[in-house]
């Protein structure tokens, strides 16, 4: 599904204050997987995500999505950004926001509207079609952004710290929403977060990145009994163990086990 080989990226290359964001990063993601990427803040997680999305051209290495080299944004790829207030279009109603990307999909107006409605329903926002983003709470706006990505029916969905700007309660709701929608839609999800608990709770697999320049320092399979639940999963011994493991990796201690 996604193959990253020897990726590196330098900002301001050549200048004395050049910044090596990523160096020698290798990663592969299987179809249908939900991969969480964690790392210390400022480690180049977003750079990695933007490279996959074709928003920036990395200075070295290769990224392949479904076997094709990424040069610009691949087909069937959607991104949910952290900052919903700046990624939703404030002048469009919720439904128009969700339906906008469908213009590229050869759908007529009616089909677009239906797809938008369906996507909004699946994120629990049925009936909010005619509202404007500013009339919704932060968590609801992020749901709209997720609905927009879902309606697009991507085979790969990238989420860049999608719950970084909402309160704790909403965050848990949205985590469960992601788990729920990936059950309905067959797609691969790469979710970037700096929250260790979240990565273990949501992911099938957690990849830990080092400080900049980022490379993979840990790759853990998350094998927790499903369906996951905010209370019981989080007290499960495996969860506690994994989370400690990831925590150590993030902080730069060598993995013990």
């Amino acid at each position: 599904m996604l193959e990253i080989t020897n990726l590196s990226h330098v900002y301001g290359g050549g200048s004395p204050n050049a910044h090596h964001a990523i160096e020698g990063l290798n990663l592969s993601v299987a179809a249908g997987e939900l991969l969480c990427i964690v790392g210390p803040s400022g480690c180049g997680k977003s750079t990695l995500l933007r490279s996959i999305a074709g928003l920036i051209t990395p200075t070295g290495g290769q990224i392949k999505v479904e076997g094709d080299l990424v040069r610009q944004t691949p087909d069937n790829l959607a991104v949910v950004f952290q900052d919903y207030s700046r990624s939703l279009f404030p002048w469009m109603s919720v439904a128009d926001n969700v339906a906008l990307p469908l213009r590229r999909k050869n759908m007529d107006k009616k089909a677009r509207r239906e797809a938008a409605h369906e996507a909004l329903e699946s994120v629990g926002l049925a009936g909010a079609e005619r509202k404007y983003p500013f009339q919704l709470s932060g968590g609801m706006q992020q749901r709209v952004a997720i609905a927009r990505a879902l309606a697009y029916r991507p085979s790969l969905m990238l989420m860049d710290e999608p719950f970084g700007s909402v309160d704790a309660q909403t965050r848990e709701d949205l985590e469960d929403l992601v788990l729920k929608v990936r059950g309905h839609h067959r797609m691969t999800i790469v979710l970037i977060t700096h929250d260790i608990d979240e990565s273990v709770y949501v992911g099938d697999r957690v990849v830990v990145l080092s400080k900049a320049p980022a490379h993979v320092v840990g790759d853990l399979k998350v094998d927790l009994p499903g369906p996951r639940d905010q209370i019981t999963t989080r007290e499960h011994p495996d969860f506690v163990h994994l989370r400690a493991e990831v925590g150590r990796l993030v902080r730069g201690h060598a993995a013990a086990a």
Partner: peptide, 18 residues
């Protein structure tokens, strides 16, 4: 501005992409 954004912190990335 260029030097500041080039530090490549996650938070700055959006500004860095001109």
């Amino acid at each position: 501005m260029a030097g500041q954004a080039d530090r490549g912190q996650d938070a700055h990335v959006t500004h860095d992409l001109r």
